[in-house]
Design a protein around this nucleic acid. Structure first.
Lengths: 149, 149
DNA sequence: TATTGTTATACTCTATAACTATA
DNA sequence: TATAGTTATAGAGTATAACAATA
């Protein structure tokens, strides 16, 4: 039975995935910040570092597409990371329009620590799910993505 | 088998709910805007209008809590809606610190149209799911919310 | 003292459009 | 002409802190 102090009715919002996606992301990102804020790693920064680690020498536009950002949005992000000595931009020798991106040693070290913390975070945030449920959730979320391109 | 032009590896991001929540929300909100942008209704505005409709006379702070915003964030939002003639603020007679919020006739009319469009949007965006899967998804998303308070 | 709404302020995130340098 | 990165700029969205009115 509902608690005596009833909360306001949500109407059709209760059945809207967008509404629930926002609340879920809010809760998850908040806890991410509380664990990785200490080492100045935001969700966006973490995803960039990880993609760089997985794809050494990747180009800025490809990175942007991979994390679903505009290529212009990636510039100030990389500026910050370069200033912190975590990332290097090397002009391509074959096509001088491209920058190839590389993690520095410091970048790899920070990523290692960030990965440890992110993994704890993930464990905490997914406590309400069984392994099968989490797998299912990721599968369902993946279906929102645009079909092709 | 993978396409010949392979996309960059995501590493551990592929298993992180936060990463997938962001992509999903991005896709969903984008399509919401494409359907309701025409009538100048953003996801935030829609949720406010619907909560006001469900809870006539609700107070600003309660509204804010209901849609997970700070009470200061709700002020400029309501300013806009009031300026558009969709919402009224009436000072409470019993406790003059409170504003009681009400939809105007115009507000109800716009909400009706917005609800029609939102329902089409919801149908479109949930095409990849069966009824059972969508129900399950909402259930799973709900588990991220903080336990009590 | 505590609470509601407000203001002033600022910060983050992100995109668009135009520029440059290449190709 | 087209592309990669950059710049300048602007707009959302949101929060924090302090304030006035009220309780």
């Amino acid at each position: 039975m509902p608690s005596s102090r009833k909360s306001p009715a949500l109407g059709c919002l209760a059945g809207h995935v967008g509404f629930h996606l926002r609340l879920a992301q809010l809760a998850v990102f908040e806890r991410f910040e509380s664990r990785l804020g200490e080492i100045d790693v935001s969700p966006a920064i973490f995803s960039v570092l990880e993609v760089l680690h997985q794809n050494d020498g990747i180009t800025q536009s490809t990175l942007a597409a991979t994390v679903s950002l505009d290529r212009s949005s990636v510039v100030p992000l990389l500026d910050k990371l370069a200033k912190r000595g975590l990332v290097e931009r090397r002009a391509s020798t074959t096509d001088r329009r491209h920058n190839h991106l590389h993690l520095t040693d410091a970048g790899r070290e920070l990523l290692a620590e960030a990965t440890r913390r992110a993994s704890e975070h993930e464990k905490e945030v997914c406590k309400p799910f069984t392994i099968a449920e989490k797998k299912l959730l990721l599968d369902l979320l993946g279906r929102f993505r645009k079909p092709r391109t």
